[in-house]
């Protein structure tokens, strides 16, 4: 990170005083820059390897491998699925559901949160209803959605979108409502009207809440899509899990779970990149 700014307050005579602050160039070695990251990443890798080795050793020896399978079997199963196309087909279905649900839910949530957060009176009227809807377990909506739009992909997309919507909506609306009055007044003093306040203060201020909403809702998009598949489907990773479990094929269940965690990891990474890009200004803590 950046070096802490240094304030120069030693100069007494202000007419010749320098800037009041100075910046210096600092030489840092490769280890100074990347040492921390290297340690963290190698530790993560080590932990993963240790867990996998323990698992492999334990399976069949200390624990019945019908229950926990073993890493090599899981890799072999992924290989089989890769070759016969099962993996690509089902993963693609689930990824589409997750991404579509995530995007639709996030867009609706951001828009709703931004507009309703600014309309204080309306928000106060709607608040208890929104909280009631938010508190409904989204799984309980699945049967209703099936009645409405059938058991196709749309149902899973809707389930994921509804879950994501509330999380993004609530976080964005909270950020909009908590905008610092001082910043709004500052724009008014510069001659800004409602439009400038909305675009130059409320919009950027709400970004932090919006991104928090995005971050926390990534796993919920997965949950929505997979639950939808578990409830009713004949394709997708949720279906693979259900199908494998029905045949006591734990290797198959774990293989599908591995793919799900990879998808979650990639999504989190993408949101993290966006977060870094937009929120450079955010306080560290």
């Amino acid at each position: 990170m950046t070096a802490a700014p240094v304030e120069d307050t030693t100069t007494g005579d202000a007419s010749t005083a320098p800037a009041g602050a100075v910046r210096e160039h600092v030489d840092r070695s490769w280890w100074d820059r990347y040492g921390d990251a290297t340690v963290i990443w190698s530790s993560r890798l080590l932990l993963l390897v240790v867990v996998l080795v323990l698992w492999q050793v334990a399976a069949g020896r200390w624990v019945d491998d019908t229950f926990i399978s073993r890493p090599t079997d899981i890799v072999a199963r992924l290989g089989d699925w890769w070759r016969d196309g099962t993996l690509a087909d089902n993963t693609w279905i689930t990824v589409q559901e997750i991404v579509l649900g995530f995007v639709i839910g996030a867009a609706a949530g951001a828009l709703g949160g931004y507009v309703l957060g600014a309309a204080r009176q309306v928000y106060r009227v709607l608040d208890p209803f929104i909280m009631a809807l938010y508190s409904i377990p989204k799984v309980a909506l699945a049967p209703l959605f099936i009645v409405w739009i059938g058991i196709g992909m749309d149902m899973k997309v809707l389930l994921a979108a509804v879950t994501v919507f509330f999380l993004v909506f609530l976080n964005t609306a909270a950020a909009v409502r908590e905008v610092d009055r001082g910043l709004v007044d500052a724009v008014r003093l510069m001659g800004g009207g409602r439009r400038e306040i909305a675009t130059k203060v409320i919009l950027p201020a709400s970004m932090a809440g919006f991104l928090t909403g995005l971050k926390v809702s990534v796993p919920y998009a997965l949950i929505g899509a997979v639950i939808g598949e578990l409830v009713a489907s004949n394709r997708g990773l949720g279906y693979l899990i259900n199908d494998s479990a029905a045949q006591f094929d734990t290797a198959g269940v774990f293989a599908a779970l591995v793919v799900l965690s990879v998808i979650a990891g990639v999504l989190n990474l993408l949101v993290g990149l966006l977060d870094k890009r937009v929120n450079r200004w955010k306080p560290l803590d």
Partner: peptide
């Protein structure tokens, strides 16, 4: 106001006096 060199710092990266400037 004596802030040359700090054009691209964000407010949180500045000291109280620099923010005043």
């Amino acid at each position: 106001v004596g802030l040359a060199g700090f054009e691209h710092h964000y407010p949180r990266e500045l000291s109280g006096g620099m923010r005043r400037r």
